Simulated scan of single mutants.
Amino acid sequence: MTTPPQDLKPRPRGRFGIRRAGTTIITIVLVGAVIAGFVAMATATGWEDSFAQLGKLEFWQIAALLGLTVANYIFRGLRWYVFSRALGLPRGRRRDARHFAGGLAMTVTPGRLGEVIRLRWLARETGWSMDRTAPLILVDRAADLAAMALILAGMLALSAAGMAGAVPAAVIAAIVAVVLTRPSVIGGLVTWSYRILAVRPRLFARARSAARSLQRFSSPRVFIPGVLYGTIGWAIEGVELYLILTWIGADIGLPSAIGIFVFATFAGGLTGAPGGLGGAEASMIALMRLQGVAMGPAIAATAVIRLTTMWFAVLMGLVVLPYAERVSRRIKREREAQALPTR
């Protein structure tokens, strides 16, 4: 067999056909665009004001923000553990913690699809196919949406003004969360899609099987604790924004700060951009301006909250990811060795 010319060889693709190089380029471009946006706004409003706001924060305050971010991901990691148990995976708290933390490195992939690396690790360590564990990603996103809907509804009730625009977001998040956790709805959508497209029947069969697996998460004993953990986690990050604004002298009240953070995160997620880059920052600054926060403090607060939440999470994930990858490979080799017939 002749080797095809180098220029005709297929380029490596990531999971779900996403080109790894393309994903990296998209992320780099978006990060560059966000940085350029911050620079442009800071230049327009005067560098001195933005830097003056940042200079008000002390080391212990930054440490406190990072500690709260860790607390947020502990709660959301507990949710991952609850859903893993509900799916029927073998018990493994350390395994679940390792997978959840390592997956945070993939937060800045388009649509957060990179987080399916957790399913690959599970496949290596437990022998479960990715088709069987795929509902974990779906129900995790659904629990996030349900938590955001609860928070937005609560903050709307407590905020004095300025959060009326969050009403549609709360309604949409609640509806999508309900849809994503109803096996009959998902199964019906899969069947309808197959009847229209009539291609790759195996793929649609797998999708229907994954939809049926969602039934395991429909129990209130499973989904309610999962939503509760997510609600606490997202609210903690909203408290971080409140603390930042208070420390730089731009207090807008706790309900408004939490509502702004959650709404901006949701809006950024709707764009499908890695980590909601661009959309989340623009929404956050705009909502703070509506609350009477000057442009300088708004830019500073947005930069700090994104660095101490999303980018700090990515850093934690990058620290854990090589270890999680190494452990998963070792366990896979051990499983394969045990499966070999003895002479």
Rank of each mutant, 00 (worst) to 15 (best):
Y81M: 15
M288A: 03
R13E: 14
A169I: 11
L119D: 06
L68Y: 08
S256F: 08
G279P: 01
A250P: 03
M163F: 10
V199P: 13
A257W: 00
L156E: 03
A97T: 08
A313W: 09
L318P: 06
A160L: 14
L241F: 05
A149E: 02
A235G: 09
A101L: 13
A173M: 03
V176L: 08
K9C: 14
A164C: 11
P12W: 02
A300K: 02
I35T: 07
S209W: 11
V167E: 09
I25S: 10
L89R: 00
S219M: 02
P168S: 01
T309V: 02
G276H: 00
V304A: 00
D96G: 10
P201A: 07
L180P: 01
G77K: 01
I252W: 04
V171W: 05
I305A: 04
E237K: 07
L243F: 06
A339C: 04
R94I: 15
E281Y: 01
A282H: 05
R329P: 07
S218F: 12
R94E: 14
A21V: 15
V171H: 07
A71C: 07
I299W: 00
R200S: 13
S328L: 04
V108C: 12
L8Y: 14
I18P: 10
A157E: 10
T309P: 05
A313S: 09
V116A: 10
G32I: 06
T342P: 10
L119S: 08
F217R: 03
A257G: 02
F263W: 14
T246H: 13
L57I: 02
I117V: 13
I244D: 00
I196R: 13
T181Y: 07
I260C: 01
H99Y: 15
G317W: 02
T2Q: 15
T45Q: 13
L340W: 13
A198G: 14
G238T: 06
A264C: 03
L318E: 05
W80K: 00
T342S: 13
S184K: 12
E240S: 12
Y81I: 15
P201Q: 09
F312K: 00
V293H: 01
R206S: 12
K9T: 15
A134V: 11
A169V: 12
W247Q: 06
V178K: 08
I25Y: 09
A105G: 00
R141S: 05
A63H: 07
G187D: 09
G253E: 01
A339I: 01
Q291F: 06
L158M: 08
M295G: 10
E336C: 01
A123P: 12
T308K: 03
A170K: 02
A301F: 04
R95D: 10
G17Q: 05
I260Q: 01
V262R: 02
W192V: 14
L145D: 05
S328E: 05
